[in-house]
Amino acid sequence: MLTDNLKHINQEILLACEKAQRSVSDVTMIAVTKSVESQTAKELAKLGVVNMAENRVDKLLEKKMALKDFSVIKWHLIGNLQRRKVKLVINEIDYFHALDSFKLAEEIQKRAEKEISCFVEVNITGEESKHGFKPAEVLPFVQEIAEFDKIKIIGLMTMAPLNASEKELHEVFSELKKLQCAISDQHLSNAPCTELSMGMSNDFPIAIEEGATFVRIGTAIFRGA
């Protein structure tokens, strides 16, 4: 079932890339393994999946330990990170997708022993239930942490509203793409900002059409598994 699901997802990624006249090599699929046990994550690794994500620190550390024999795996923390837990996880991950405050950046700078590839989380729609900077706050924040040599802002991340229409999805993802380009055009040494982490199981083809380079997929991989 995992094999079939991955094949279907890869086909959808290919079709979305063709529709947007993009290369499929520009899109990285991240398997979000939060809903499955380590054994299922191992099966994914055996099928060649090399990017895996968790939204909780304890679960990421647990899965990374269980899959220690798969050294090629890149680990992504995609959930919001409490400052008190930074020291536990920051040197165990390759990507952090939810940088959402200056104080969190300070703690990462203090605890990291290597440069961490980070996405700034952006709340495009202004929903109170979501974390992240307002679009107008992103560039000032990136400039404010310019001296933090342990943080590289490789891109921006957002989540679309639940039950959004296709039109709304296109608008949200397009807005993040415009913001990403505006920051990239600043040519800041700490923030190349060439990447976009957006799109999940229910909306990733639209996210790809609008420029996503990382899509975070869980449900669609494990459906029926």
Rank of each mutant, 00 (worst) to 15 (best):
T3N: 08
K7M: 05
N10A: 00
N10P: 03
Q11Y: 08
E12C: 10
I13W: 04
L14P: 04
L14R: 13
L15D: 11
A16M: 06
S23A: 13
V24T: 08
V24M: 14
T28P: 13
M29T: 01
I30H: 14
K34N: 08
S35N: 06
S35W: 01
V36I: 14
V36C: 04
V36S: 13
A41M: 10
K42R: 15
A45I: 04
G48F: 15
V49R: 04
V49S: 00
V50G: 08
N51S: 03
M52A: 01
A53Q: 02
N55E: 00
R56G: 03
R56T: 13
R56A: 00
D58N: 15
D58Y: 14
L60K: 12
L61P: 03
L61R: 10
L61Y: 01
D69T: 01
S71N: 05
W75H: 07
W75M: 00
L77S: 05
I78V: 15
I78T: 14
R83T: 15
K85H: 12
L88D: 12
V89C: 07
V89Y: 00
V89I: 12
I93T: 07
D94S: 04
F96R: 00
A98D: 03
A98Q: 03
S101P: 00
K103T: 11
L104I: 08
L104T: 09
I108L: 11
Q109C: 00
K110A: 07
K114C: 14
I116A: 12
I116V: 15
C118S: 11
E121Q: 15
G126Q: 04
E128Q: 15
E128Y: 09
S129F: 08
S129L: 08
H131T: 13
G132Q: 04
A136M: 09
E137L: 14
E137Q: 14
V138G: 12
F141S: 13
F141K: 01
V142N: 09
Q143T: 07
I145E: 04
I145V: 11
A146F: 10
A146R: 05
A146D: 07
F148D: 13
D149L: 02
I151G: 05
K152I: 10
I154M: 14
M157C: 00
N163G: 00
A164Y: 07
E168T: 13
E171V: 14
V172E: 06
F173K: 09
L176M: 10
K177D: 12
K177T: 11
L179D: 10
L179P: 10
L179S: 14
A182R: 01
D185Q: 14
D185V: 03
D185M: 12
L188D: 10
N190E: 06
C193N: 02
L196C: 11
L196F: 09
L196I: 13
M200N: 03
N202T: 08
N202G: 11
N202M: 13
F204E: 15
P205F: 10
A207P: 12
I208S: 11
E209A: 09
F214C: 13
R216D: 09
T219L: 06
T219P: 03
R223E: 06
R223A: 15
G224P: 00
A225E: 12
A225Y: 14
